[in-house]
């Protein structure tokens, strides 16, 4: 697992936790502890995505990739080309 896949793995994990908390908060909108946890995870997730995108290129077109030329979106591997081992 090279550095890139490790970072991707971390992003996937954080995103999964965010989705789980999202679903929980949908039915428990007042839960302070869950809310704190969600916002903490969201900050970590955005930081992880930012780090990844500035090194390896965009995960989403509207991400944090530096405004360079040429257009980066077509450079990175397509999702089905990435080995999620």
């Amino acid at each position: 697992m090279d550095e890139r896949q490790l970072m991707l793995k971390e992003i996937q994990q954080l995103e999964f936790v965010a989705v789980e908390l999202n679903l929980f908060l949908d039915t428990h909108p007042q839960d302070q502890a869950a809310l704190r946890h969600f916002y903490a995870v969201r900050d970590k997730l955005l930081a992880a995505v930012k780090r990844y995108e500035q090194i390896y290129g965009p995960l989403t077109v509207v991400g944090f990739t530096p405004k360079t030329c040429p257009w980066q979106w077509i450079e990175g591997p397509w999702p089905w080309e990435i080995e999620y081992v």
Binding site: E10, Q13, E20
Partner: peptide, 10 residues
Amino acid sequence: PAEALEKGTL
């Protein structure tokens, strides 16, 4: 997070 993704729930 790692365990949650692996086990499928938080």
